[in-house]
């Protein structure tokens, strides 16, 4: 039996804006199993960001049930949520969010600094391994300003991997990159997914969805589509089809 990483039942989230109540999510149900590569799509205002915040344990649902790795998130305190984020989730952001003037390795070490179970030596070792996995073994001491956008996003991916999360949560992770670099990053994601890492990718770009094996489409706070992708494209092959760049 496959393990359920995410289990969402009748999840609702409402915001009170003055006297008005905005229902951002109106009763969502889905589960994500271990090893899946899911894209959550939707235009702006669809409840995509709200979904992302809840999935990332940055926000709490108004009602309904959310479990990550068999842990019920509802009613957890701020500090307990922080621990869940630290141990179970790897975040990747559109704008990389690396610490400026801080080396790649120190950026990758960051989540482990907040985990007192990890020793200094282990922290360094795991950071180096994570950077090797994203192909930046020779860039350990480079600061973000010395790295290209794609390399910076790779550092961010390494950072999301370093705590061995149950799921990587990417928010428009290719949004700031050109097509070629986007495909490179997607190829990396596919490679990581093949190794068994569960990935949830929030995006509004349809072509990104073609690289994942499942797509959930949100509209006005409801799921309008949830389908398996039978014909997953290989990002590495698509990359090869792109016209060669002149150097």
């Amino acid at each position: 039996m496959t393990k359920e990483i995410i289990k969402i039942e009748n999840l609702k989230r409402a915001f009170t804006m003055g006297s008005e109540t905005v229902h951002a999510l109106k009763g969502i149900n889905f589960t994500i199993n271990e090893g899946e590569f899911v894209t959550i799509m939707g235009s702006s205002g669809s409840g995509k960001s709200t979904m992302l915040n809840i999935l990332g344990c940055l926000d709490q649902p108004t009602s309904g049930n959310y479990e990550i790795d068999q842990v019920k998130v509802k009613n957890l305190s701020r500090n307990q949520l922080a621990t869940i984020r630290n141990e179970k989730i790897g975040f990747i952001f559109q704008s990389y969010n690396l610490l400026a003037r801080t080396s790649a390795i120190e950026n990758v070490e960051l989540p482990l600094l907040y985990n007192s179970k990890v020793s200094t030596e282990e922290r360094r070792e795991r950071a180096i391994n994570a950077l090797k996995m994203v192909g930046l073994a020779d860039r350990l001491d480079h600061t973000p300003s010395q790295l290209s956008g794609g390399q910076q996003q790779r550092v961010a991916i390494a950072r999301s991997l370093v705590n061995n999360p149950v799921m990587i949560l990417a928010d428009e992770a290719t949004g700031n990159l050109d097509t070629r670099t986007s495909y490179e990053i997607m190829a990396l994601f596919q490679e990581l997914n093949k190794k068994g890492i569960t990935i949830t990718f929030v995006t509004h770009e349809p072509d990104i969805a073609t690289f994942s094996n499942r797509t959930i489409v949100l509209k006005d706070g409801n799921i309008i589509q949830d389908y398996k992708n039978n014909k997953v494209l290989s990002a590495a092959q698509e990359l090869a089809k792109l016209p060669q760049q002149d150097h």
Binding site: G56, L58, R78, N79, A82, T83, R85, N86, E87, F91, F93, N97, L99, L110, P111, Y114, N115, R159, N163
Partner: peptide, 16 residues
């Protein structure tokens, strides 16, 4: 502020 947000996202508690 953004750095603080990131630190919180990757597991930094308020007390940290």
């Amino acid at each position: 502020t953004k750095e603080i947000g990131l630190r919180m996202a990757v597991g930094g508690k308020g007390s940290d």
